[in-house]
């Protein structure tokens, strides 16, 4: 295991996590989400490279494709919040509770 890559991956994941939980702006949270995904992709890619395993590379490719689809969905939803006249923040979306 390459400690540099893994520590980078762990740092990315934790930063992403922090952004997701601590920030209140949807766009920033979404960036955190993407960071978490990419951290995982980095770790997967490292292992695939270490083992020379093509399966891992295929996984990386497919995951990136899925992340792109996810981004489309997520950004659409954030845009729709924006269009609905509310600020795209979590505090604006608190009607469902209890």
């Amino acid at each position: 295991m390459n400690p540099l890559v893994w520590s980078a991956s762990a740092t990315l994941f934790l930063f992403g996590l922090a952004a997701l939980i601590l920030r209140r702006e949807l766009l920033a949270m979404f960036l955190g989400l993407e960071l978490m995904v990419l951290a995982a992709v980095l770790a997967l890619g490292e292992t695939a490279a270490r083992l020379g395993d093509s399966e891992g590379f295929v996984a990386v490719l497919l995951i990136l494709a899925i992340a792109a689809a996810e981004a489309v969905v997520g950004l659409t939803l954030i845009l729709r919040v924006h269009w609905s006249g509310r600020p795209p923040e979590t505090e604006a979306l608190r009607e469902l509770k209890g």
């Binding site: 295991m1 991956s9 994941f13 978490m36 995904v37 951290a39 995982a40 992709v41 770790a43 997967l44 490292e46 292992t47 695939a48 891992g56 996984a59 995951i63």
Partner: peptide, 10 residues
């Protein structure tokens, strides 16, 4: 899940 998968893969 992806992180878990990466750990498992490693």
């Amino acid at each position: 899940f992806l992180m878990g998968m990466a750990l498992h893969f490693a």
